[in-house]
Amino acid sequence: MHEVGLMQSLLKMIETYSREYRLQKISRVVLHVGKLSNAAPEALQFAFEAISPGTLVDGAELVIEQPEGRTRCTACGQEFASKMARWTCPECGQPVVIIAGQELHLQTLEGDQEEETNGD
């Protein structure tokens, strides 16, 4: 996966939401990175730290939560918790589809809102 590129896209997204909610400094970013997505949390952390200096996420805490993976067999319909991406059903050997664990989401933003200026 392309962790630096992903973090740059994330930063753009954070900037857009910050404008909308008038946040001037971000203190915490929570990501959902599913266990079956191809992004590596350590690499994301590293990339985040590399691109934050001088931006509005400079010094922000990055929290990465990892939703569990689940797959469902296209033939027998059984569902399985999956730690790793798998392609065939452990019961009948037919192909499976991944139904959870591929999230790559910006879940929550925490920051200080701009203060309303009261005209004097």
């Binding site: 992903l6 896209s9 939401y17 909610y21 910006l106 879940q107």
Partner: peptide, 14 residues
Amino acid sequence: MEINIGQHILNAHQ
């Protein structure tokens, strides 16, 4: 202030 978003990081590309 905490904002809940829940959007894919590559949403703009999508």
